[in-house]
Design a binder for these strands. Structure first.
Lengths: 208, 208
DNA sequence: ATCTTTATCCCGTAAAAAGGGTATTTTAAT
DNA sequence: ATTAAAATACCCTTTTTACGGGATAAAGAT
């Protein structure tokens, strides 16, 4: 049985790296690659890979969204997430989006092959460095409401409660309450730490 | 003339990608790779590449430091920085550290070859997406003193002035002064915004 | 229909930060 | 040797946050 694989990553070097590593395997067939989510979906109309290696950071869309989309339209297709070490917090989200495995870009050939093999057998493959994270439920996901997220970014912008209140047509005491809830949920002692944790847990994104 | 090149990157896939892309070029010879700064310096004792492709994010040391070290011990060796798009703020630092060029990991074969060629001719090569940044001097670099950096991370940890003072054996008014200078230098209206900008300008790192 | 969450608002006190100064000692640079 | 920059420390005032409590209406979920 020959597995057909497809790669989604905006880093050309990574695409070529995986391809180079796997080209000697005659149980695997390279189907092509895409550098963003839109191009990926377009390619999948004609190409039908058994497995997709997918970066979680894409220029047009997050890996989660693309993964969900793929799984919805092509439920049989397996998806393995791909990322760098400092984005570990995305693992859980990726798995929740339906991914079948997760490896780091520092993975060697052996690990990639193992991951593909396990995933094609219907199992879940997680990188050793990453799987430990899932065993620590103490840092459980922080769920913010729409309003709280909105206020969080304004706090990060340096606005005071009353400025935020004006901006959102609220009473400043309302903003104060939301701020309290944010501190509580995020587990920070003050706004500075809150912003730091927000970045670490990807509640705030660097490139926005 | 055959150029010997060396790769420093902790992402195995990137190393293999570059290698695969360049192996058909008989004007280039692959000398090996290292996954961190220490291993790189060790390898350079025996191997003498003409050019090093170097990731700016290494597990043990930042690319700047490694670049400086390399340039100090082996002044003739050319260095091309390598990074992803969202780390553009590092470009200037990398060049100041003596790098001869800078490309993104999304670069294709043509661009890598062009970069190597130009750099070996003694010129500086900058990726088109990146070079624009250097023409915007309006967001000039923020230079913090050692003490200020130290206090910045403690503020991000959520400590108050007096807690920081205790930790560093200072008066709390001293910490207050440093905090004022930080706000001024970083250009923030309060601590929350300061931490946000600090992350955006890489004064604070996510994975520490 | 009932319960829960979300979003809204208010009061009060205490703690901390923001902002305005000034000033001395140490260190680094020229 | 002189100068400049960094690190240290203090005072004052105002603003903002932090933290305690309680309360109500609307929207969603079960």
């Amino acid at each position: 049985m020959k597995y057909r694989y497809f790669i989604v990553d905006d880093h050309f070097m990574v695409v070529e790296g995986i391809r180079a590593l796997l080209q000697s395997e005659n149980s695997l067939e390279f189907m092509g690659s895409a550098r963003n989510a839109a191009f990926c979906m377009a390619e999948l109309l004609s190409k039908r890979p058994d497995i997709i290696l997918m970066d979680i950071n894409l220029p047009d869309k997050s890996g989660f969204e693309l993964c969900k989309e793929v799984k919805l339209k092509y439920p049989g297709t397996k998806v393995i997430g791909l990322s760098t070490f400092n984005q570990q917090s995305f693992v859980k989200k990726m798995l929740e989006s339906g991914a079948d495995g997760y490896i780091l870009k520092s993975a060697d050939k052996k690990e990639i092959l193992k991951a593909i093999e396990m995933v094609m057998r219907g199992q879940i493959y997680l990188d050793a460095d990453v799987s430990g994270l899932l065993r620590h439920p103490e840092d459980r996901e922080i769920i913010l409401t729409k309003r709280e997220k909105e206020i969080l970014v304004l706090i990060a912008e340096g606005l005071t409660n009353s400025e935020i209140a004006d901006r959102l047509f609220l009473g400043s005491s309302t903003v104060d309450t939301h701020r309290k809830h944010l501190l509580l949920k995020i587990g920070a002692r003050n706004s500075a730490e809150m912003i730091k944790i927000a970045f670490q847990k990807n509640l705030l994104l660097l490139d926005s």
